[in-house]
Simulated assay, not measured.
Amino acid sequence: MTDYRAVFDADIAFVNGGGLQTEGFRLDLPGHGLSEREIGELLVRHLGLAMVGTVTLTNLEIVEEAHKGSRGVSADARSGEGEAARRIEFVDLSHPIRAGLVTYPGLPAPTITPHLTREASREKYAPGTEFAMDVITMIGNTGTYLDSPYHRYADGGDLASLRLETLVGLPAEVFHLTDATGRGIPAEVFYDRDLAGAAVLLHTGWSSRFGTPAYADGAPFLTEAGARHLVAAGAVLVGIDSLNIDDVESGGQRPAHSILLEAGVHVVEHLTALDRLPPRGARFTAVPPRVEDFGTFPVRAFAEVPAAAG
């Protein structure tokens, strides 16, 4: 069987500044017909780079040459081993909901009104027994919430159709991007990870502005290319701790929502506390109620994180 290697010069820029250049780099290839983008992704995996913004290859040539053992990035780190991995810390990743909470500027805040007060309930129950029954009125886009395909597409699956195995205990691949120099999260950021079957969580740090006017201005987002890469990589869910997974300041286009939800990839927005998660090794859960003909609803999102050995 013939082995192939790529020979090229490379210019790699990082989203948090700085870069890396190579000349005459040689990289094992799994076959002959790879695109320049695919070779760039292999390069990032081989070098084990994180926070990559762009990869530019020049003077690219494919040659027949015996492989030298170019490495990728092992996915074994997801599973964890030993007693420490079995001891779990739960991390709440949801914003609390309260009456008057403004999640997204322009959308109505929730209201909470009593249906049966404790005082009134005393007339219905035995002495010493009382209950409160309240009514909450809110838009589905309140607090930390999940978008199903029905949110974007009339024929997409609604909340009641979502399979639990796509919502519960997903291996979490967390990308810590708080020092990124641009708002848009590019596809190249994800090149160093195996994302098949994962919940991809984008930690931008924007949740610190939640509930303030500053939350609505200049928020980070996932680029169209980034969304396409995550679908191709087999991600099951994508979450972000920002105002929207799309750039809401560029007009009415919503490419990230459109691409992800069309592919059946769930979207969770307005996460918080992602700084408490490791890049790998946690498990992510976000389950909405089974509401038919409804696309978006708040979730209690949380992560199970293996506790450090004491």
Rank of each mutant, 00 (worst) to 15 (best):
T103G: 03
R86G: 05
D92G: 04
P105C: 04
V102N: 05
P96T: 08
I136Q: 11
D147I: 00
T117R: 09
A126I: 06
E89P: 00
T103H: 01
A120D: 15
Y104S: 10
I97A: 01
I136K: 07
A99R: 12
T129W: 08
E119L: 12
R98H: 15
T113Q: 12
F131V: 15
E123N: 11
D147W: 06
T144L: 05
G140H: 00
K124Y: 13
A109Q: 08
H115K: 11
V91R: 07
P105I: 10
R118D: 07
G128L: 12
P108Y: 08
T142N: 05
T144R: 02
S94Q: 02
M133A: 12
P96G: 05
L101T: 01
R122C: 05
L101F: 04
N141R: 15
A132C: 06
H151M: 07
K124W: 11
P108C: 10
P105T: 12
G82H: 06
T142E: 05
D92P: 02
I112H: 02
T137M: 10
R118M: 13
A120C: 03
H115E: 14
I88W: 10
E123S: 14
A120T: 06
H95L: 02
P149T: 07
G82Q: 08
R87D: 06
D92Y: 05
R122L: 08
V91Y: 02
A126Q: 13
L107W: 11
G140V: 04
N141F: 02
I88S: 05
P114H: 09
T142G: 03
R87C: 03
T117D: 09
H115Y: 13
R86Y: 03
T142H: 03
T142A: 11
E89Q: 14
H151L: 07
I97H: 01
P96I: 04
L101N: 01
Y150K: 14
T137W: 03
R87P: 00
R86S: 15
T103P: 00
E83T: 12
A99G: 12
L146I: 06
G100M: 12
E89T: 13
G82E: 07
S121K: 06
A132R: 14
Y104K: 12
P127Y: 10
V135S: 05
D134A: 09
I97P: 02
